[in-house]
Each structure stands twice: as C-alpha cells, then as structure tokens.
Nucleic acid binder design. Sequence first.
DNA 1: TTGAAAGCGCTAACAC
DNA 2: GTGTTAGCGCTTTCAA
Lengths: 326, 326
Amino acid sequence: MTPKTVSRALNDAPHVSEAVRQKVKAAAEELDYHPNIAAQSLIARRSFLIGLTYERPSPSYVVELQNGALGRLEDGRYRLVVLPFSHVASRPEELGRLLLRAGLDGILLAPPACDQPALLNMLERQKLPYARITPHSELDRGIVVTMDETAAGQAVAAHLLSMGHRLIGIVLGDPSHAASMGRMEGYRRAFSELQVPIDESLIVTGDFTYDVGYRVARTLLIRSPRPTAILAQNDDMAVAAIAAARDLGLAVPHDLSVAGFDNSEVSRTAWPQLTTVNQPVRQMAWDAADRLIAALDGKSDGTAPLRRDHAHELLIRASTAAPGAP
Amino acid sequence: MTPKTVSRALNDAPHVSEAVRQKVKAAAEELDYHPNIAAQSLIARRSFLIGLTYERPSPSYVVELQNGALGRLEDGRYRLVVLPFSHVASRPEELGRLLLRAGLDGILLAPPACDQPALLNMLERQKLPYARITPHSELDRGIVVTMDETAAGQAVAAHLLSMGHRLIGIVLGDPSHAASMGRMEGYRRAFSELQVPIDESLIVTGDFTYDVGYRVARTLLIRSPRPTAILAQNDDMAVAAIAAARDLGLAVPHDLSVAGFDNSEVSRTAWPQLTTVNQPVRQMAWDAADRLIAALDGKSDGTAPLRRDHAHELLIRASTAAPGAP
DNA sequence: TTGAAAGCGCTAACAC
DNA sequence: GTGTTAGCGCTTTCAA
C-alpha cells in the first residue's frame, strides 16, 4: 500500500479496487487522518479560500452577505475569509495588497470596494478572479450581481409622492458609496415624473449611521416649513429620523412619514415598522459566490452573462401615510 | 542571487547585506511578486488560518465577535475563516469534523459550541488549539474568556425589584445555550436576596429570536394579574416584548417595564431605549484571539491564567421605571 | 490495478 | 554573507 494508492482511495479517484478503497477509508477514520491542505494547495495551485471584502456597514447587511456566500460554500470545499476594510476610497491599493497577500483563489467585493477601478486593475493584473456585488460603475467588468438602485429609489419616492407628500426631506448616505447617487437619481425621476420640483435645501448628507442620521434628520425637522416626509437612504438613518421626530414631539406617521432602504432587521423591529426597500442581499451574495466558484472550477459555460440583475421589492409598512393621516 | 537569498531578504531574516535586501524588495515590488502561502504553510506546518464558530445569533453579536477577533489579527499574518454552524448541541461531532478538515491553526468557539464537551474532546485529540468565549461549563478547560452571567442577571433583576416590581415575567433564551441558565440563576439570587418569591408560572421560554419572543411575551401580557415588568434574556426578545405590549395597548414603561440583555444595536435604536446589560463581546473576542495566537506562536509566558473574566455593565435606560410611573 | 519517481514553491540546516 | 542540499505532504506523470 503506497501513498499514491491511499491518495487515490481517499479522493475517490479511479483505478482502485473497491476493497482497498474501503480499507483505506476505514483506516483513515480510525486514525483521525486528515490530508494536509497546504500540500494539496501547493500542487493544485489553489488555496480553496474565498475572500469577502466589505466596509463596516450595518451588522445585518454584513451578516446577510456572509450567510449568502456561506450558503453557496457549504459543501466545505472552499472556505470563507472575511476581510473588512475601512476607507477603501482613499486607499484602494492598500486593500489590493492585502487581498493579494491573503492567498485567495477569488474574492467577493461588496460596496464600496467593488467600485474602485484601481483595485480592479490590481486584481486583474495579478489574475485574481473577483465577483462584484451591487457595483455602480463599470458594470461590464468582471462578474457582476446588481440591483437597480435607481428603480428602487424611484419606487420609494413615488410611494411618498402618491400619498400626497410634496415637502420631502432627503437624507443621503455616504457619498463615497455610489449607491447613494443611484438612489438619489431614482428620487429625482419620481419627482420629475409628477413634475414636482425638488427643494434642494431639503437634501442633507449622512453616512449611513444612526448617529449622524439623527443629527441631520433633526436639522430637517426644525426647519420651517417642516417637511411632511423623510426619505432616508438606509434603515439605520430612517430609524434615527423617527427618533429625532419623537424627541421633537412629532408622531410618525401622523406628523411625519419616514421611508428607509435595505429591509434590515431594524426596519421590522422599529416602531412604527419601516416602509423600506428590500435588497435581496443574501441571494445576491449567493449568486456572486456561485458564479465566482463556477469560474474558479472552470465550469462557467461561457454562455452565462457576466451580469445578473436581481429585483428590488418595495415594502410598505406603518411608517408612511398620507400627510396628517390619523 | 539564489532563491534562498531572496527568501532571506523578503522575510527580513539576518545574514543578508542591506544592499541585497533593498534590491530584492524593489524587484519583488516591481514584479508584483507574492510568496506562495501554501508552500510556506507546508514547511511551517501552519496554515495561518484562525476559525471562528458561532451559531446564528443576532447580527450585532456576530459582527462584534468578528470585529473583536479581526482587530487582533489585523497585522495580516493570520486570516479569519468564519464557520457558523447550526444545531451544534445535537451534532457536535459533525462540527468537529468540519473544523478538523478546515486546516485551521486554531479556533475561536462562541456559544453554544464552546460548551460541547464532545467537541472539545475531538479538538484536543487532534491537538487543534482553541479559545472559548463565554463558556458556561468546564471553565478550567483550555483558554477561556468569560463574563459572569449570573452576576449580570442578578444586577438587572435587582434593578427591577428595587424599583418596586414584584410580578415579573421572565423570557428565557434557548435552553441549549448555557447562558440562559446562568442568567436565570442570577435572577433567582436577586429575588431571594429580597425574599421575594418567584412565580414560576411567569417564566416562559423563547429562543433568543424576535418572533418567538413576541409570541411568548404576549402570553405573559394577557395573563391576569398581568406582570408589571418583563426580564428578557436578550435584547431582540425585549424589543419584541415592547412590541407585544404596544399591540395590546400598553405603554412602556408606564404599564410595563422591560429589560434586555446584550446592549445590542437594537437596544439603542428601540423606543423607548432598552435597559440592558453590556456584554463586552468585542473585547472578549479580542482577548480570546490574543491568547490563542500567543499560544500558537509559543509566546504564552506560562504564567498568564488560562481564564480571564470581563466585567458586565448594567445600562439603565428608558424602558424601565417604577410600576405605574408617568 | 498498483507503484516509483519527480516536483509543486518555499525554507531549515548546513556548507562555503 | 551567500549558496547548496534536502524535504515539508501530497499528487501527477509514467512504468510495471
């Protein structure tokens, strides 16, 4: 019984008698033997490691992202390495070096890293395959999984307008996330469709966090005339807007309607429950992992499109109503 | 210039002239050369991979855990592999096999995996080092980072009792998490210290999730006499209790005080903000990673205790008040 | 169906 | 300070 025979038996390779295979497997089990992955990787020229890069957004987003990817990886052949990285926009090469040094077979890029051309250039130069989750620029580059943010933004803005709101405060997210601009563009379309002018002074900038969201929402609510609705670019800021309203003695949705974005956990546990947009993060992450792995395994049939769009879903809940509604 | 010289230069090993070292590094930079980690691992007999295992609890807990560990790993030498696993209690050997096959150097175990003796046995048999985060049994086994759940439970229960509550509903978490029992024990101590009897019929069992929390909290609130306060074993269930109260027309904290556990994001964004207990998850995860790595690098000085306790912190916020307070 | 030899990319140990 | 040799644990030839 030579090493090679054992190798064949354990890997279910052909040219081994069934009897030998059984005996080898039994012995391996008995001895708690596990092949050395480093040695296998050295030969295969693969690490069986997939990276996931994102930038400190809300916990629920991160977990959805991870669970989506892990769902696809669950046969255990590939392992998921998490590589969060802050301030990508100001130092894309640094992230690139980190990723290239991590010995990955492929990488899943969430916003805003997926929108850094300098980073994509580095990865391509080193032939490190990547899949981009909801990028907003260069949509033809690499494997892309998207949701039409503009259409989603338009849907939620149209919802508020259709209920009669005209003075609508807008709380933008971090401007370095392209999602922010895409959603804003959707708002503009909804307004222009109804020929309602946008009051630019009612647009304020947050950074997707609760604390900053609270502050900027408050500035909107102490204005006169006061907006009757607030469009927040994510749920955390929308919840913050509700808190700011409450602290000013305003009732939601009677005095103020609030809509969020993301359908995060907090949008359901908030009170009133948030009207928001569901971004199928989990499915998109699964899809991205699926196609990245297909590419790594050489199984992409070449005919599959590189880009795939997932649908958004407007979830109308209790935080929005007609102005002054009971 | 032989391979070995290059190796020495790149690894900042001694016995290389500074001139050569510079030249080698410049060339490596120029060629985007990165050493093959698999080959290095094969020699070093280390993968430089740390695993993190947990069971689908709240997103904020998971992210705190990861960020704590990643904070310690940030020099990039070690990488973090996430390995969530459901229903550990019913199949610990399956998780053990997964971990042993993942080629890890060490593993961070969060609840409830950290409390599975069968799992610990497997890891020890294979000499896979581990660190346990807030275990509740066999506290002398391996590297342990804990918080005294009983003391924390006692603190929060004492808080409610001291405000005059006597009819207190208790919403337990998943009984397979030992934390649940530890916290309950703390509640009992607080009651017995004041010689207040516990009404066992006011104890209900949830599973740490919002949805089940809502259901069981509701059963408490439609009882007569109705409890004046609810002790929930985590924040998600506490928020659910608030929602159930609201849906029954009860005001918090006027008609019902609610206290949670965990100081999760939702405890701050809820309304009213939750009285809760801060578990320093992030610091504990950092500490666990720190000591695991010290052990892997052979740098544990042998004098450091294997177990380290972190302090809890009772956060009194707006969801608790004296019974009937305005 | 099985085995022997060679080598994946790197570095420890030992010359020089 | 630098080079040579050997080998980490596994699998791919190719031969038996």
